[in-house]
Design a protein around this nucleic acid. Structure first.
Lengths: 228, 228, 228, 228
DNA sequence: TATGAATGAGAGTTCATTCAT
DNA sequence: AATGAATGAACTCTCATTCAT
């Protein structure tokens, strides 16, 4: 599940020519190292640390990734790729409600163990390429939510963005309590899921998907300004 | 409500001697400036900026606060002082449920407008002196929660820490959507409050208060390591 | 003549307060070091080298000067200040022709010994503040040229900019032959001066002063792009 | 006139064996690319850029040229080759004075359009191989100057080096005013040419040819030290 | 022979912290 | 007690040069 996606190496240079073997290896090493370092210490970790962990010179990092943001984005997209697959497989579940549960649990679990992933999901670096990724993730979720309404397990005013927000809230709990009570977030899972079920309406309307994307990119300037 | 707490100046130098008047004034200026700066730009703002805003030399900041973290903590405790008062006044409400509502709404609103406050609440710096502050906040809340159970508006397995977690989740939403949909967090307020009302039990037990304090301090090492 | 102008220290912070003694000393040390280093190795020398030569940390350089360009400009303006004075004293000469000679010889000599000065005169960094400096230098020269025409030692189509161009040409020779034939530029001095005297007209019109300033700033982007 | 001199390829590997055809082609591609890049962006352009422009790997550049300076020198000699031809054709002119005029105008024009050429002419990199090139250029010029004296259009104390210096001065003007007044250098052309005509003697003797070569190489160490 | 990935020293710049004034 | 100048490690990024493929 967390195996480095070496096929990405091909995408990086376009379809023109397969990447040299050592280059591909180093790219993989860098991605792995970056993921580990960012996971443990967040996006403020230095590129020197990442390169050192990968057993590679800094310059090599800059050959593969234009700058720190690109590397972070690459690591992110790799992880998000996993989440997209999770969203897709969840959307393919026969029972819509179980699909939602599966997705939220899986996504929260993933982010629980990765500080950088959470930072980047909340304060995206490069909105452009992230947007399409979000699009790809919102696609399945939208289908899932629609099906949930048809099956009568979701309120009519629920939207795909609500799923994202719920996930976000749980991730916050999971992140803060990671060391002391790593499962505490599960305590609030049924509460939030219940909130999506039919019953009395929610007072404030949900945000549209583009607003949600914008919100996720909120921190962009902050993080760039902070040198993140 | 946001008045600078000058009595804290006594704690800073110990109880031995009252602080000189200009020193006390500078301490107050620094706290005010730090609060403003951290509120606007977060904890990554430089101490030079804080000192400049206070109209004071950096050295003065270091006379009053051992380091940046201490200053941040001081500002935090100041804000928490406000929240303690909010907790106390909420606990004094005749209707327990309204007290809870008032507290959560107030706390979430407060954090919505203060980037530094949220950063510091999720990544506390110095657990030691913060602990006593948390103690003071948990006190009223515990009473409030107890009364809520008596009045039959809270489930038996709800604890004071749950209120803190709920608040945290809402703050996350508020923070991320601050620019695009600043009121979206209210959409999830009733969902989470409902989760505290009597009904089916929560699957995972709550954390004890000391665990909660520890959880709030989780990031300490991270932030120090990150130079934040 | 080349003594560090310590009074500039006061100008730097404005008239508000005299600079602290050690700060003034370090500022002087930095200016001296920068002038020496830039003189010997040109504007591509690193700030670390300048700081080391001054016996001071890099950070100190950045306290006094916003960036490398500022420091270079400061050194430049110091030297140009000398040239302005040379222009003024030359313009005050009773004999206009001798004034011109004195100025050109003096200016060429100054630039001969300072690689950075020449680089910066040809590829100014900060056109804004340099502009006013140029204005101050062109003032006396314009007067001198006018008087030269009145006295019949200069052609009517000669302008102040011509003096600048002549100086530039001599400096080029002086610069290139600095090590092998440091006085060679004097061989071409009378040729160029003769060119300004009455006789047959010059085929191409001179440039206006604003064009000249623009030309002097030509390299600006180049040098900045080059990291200079 | 600007055709790549492929015969130089033989010199590069020694006379031992003719270069392989594709190697020769790459060498030519590199020279062309380097000339274009250096012309446009000066000698600070990176070798990666040159190689990319040539459609060739960096490594290939290092197979043909020991380092960046060698490549720059090669490009220079290529251009000087053109100037040698200009010198030769100018020297073949029936009228000596017109020959000199033609040469100076041509050389100045050439350098006007080539930033790298001027940089390298004023700060030559490798005196050794450049020397022979200079010899070849000075040859025709010496003849031209001699004939000029015979024809009575040049002073007796004029030497071939004077022609080079005059050219250099004009190039400086041309370079600095390239964007604002690209023809201004012509204003000073008759002045400098007049300086060579019979009349009153020049006060300072000219430099000998070896001194001139040395002067042209003056910057060598500077530029290498500067990383240029 | 050609390639271009890898390297790492070094550039400019920032900022928490110390210490002379 | 207050000041703010000084420090220097740390950061991101560039590029001449080397070397495995």
């Amino acid at each position: 599940m967390t195996k480095v996606d070496e096929s990405a190496a091909v995408d990086a240079v376009g379809a023109s020519r397969p990447m040299r073997k050592d280059a591909a290896r180093n790219r993989a090493l860098l991605l792995t190292a970056a993921r580990d370092v960012f996971r443990e210490r967040g996006l403020d970790a230095s590129l020197d640390d990442v390169a050192a962990r990968a057993g590679v010179g800094v310059g090599t990092a800059y050959r593969h990734f234009a700058n720190k943001h690109e590397l972070a984005r690459a690591v992110l997209s790799e992880r998000i790729e996993e989440m997209i697959q999770l969203a897709e497989s969840s959307a393919a579940t026969r029972d819509a409600w179980q699909g939602i549960t599966t997705f939220i649990e899986g996504a929260a679990t993933a982010q629980t163990t990765d500080r950088g992933l959470r930072e980047v999901l909340m304060g995206a670096h490069d909105p452009q390429q992230m947007e399409q990724i979000h699009d790809r993730m919102t696609g399945p979720l939208r289908g899932l939510v629609a099906r949930g309404k048809t099956e009568g397990v979701l309120r009519d005013d629920v939207q795909a963005t609500d799923v994202g927000v719920v996930m976000m809230m749980l991730c916050t709990v999971a992140d803060v309590t990671a060391d002391t009570a790593p499962d505490l977030w599960r305590r609030y899972l049924p509460v939030l899921l219940d909130g999506l079920r039919p019953g009395k309406a929610l007072p404030v309307p949900p945000i549209e998907e583009d607003e949600f994307r914008a919100a996720m990119s909120t921190y962009k300037q902050r993080m760039q300004g902070a040198g993140g």
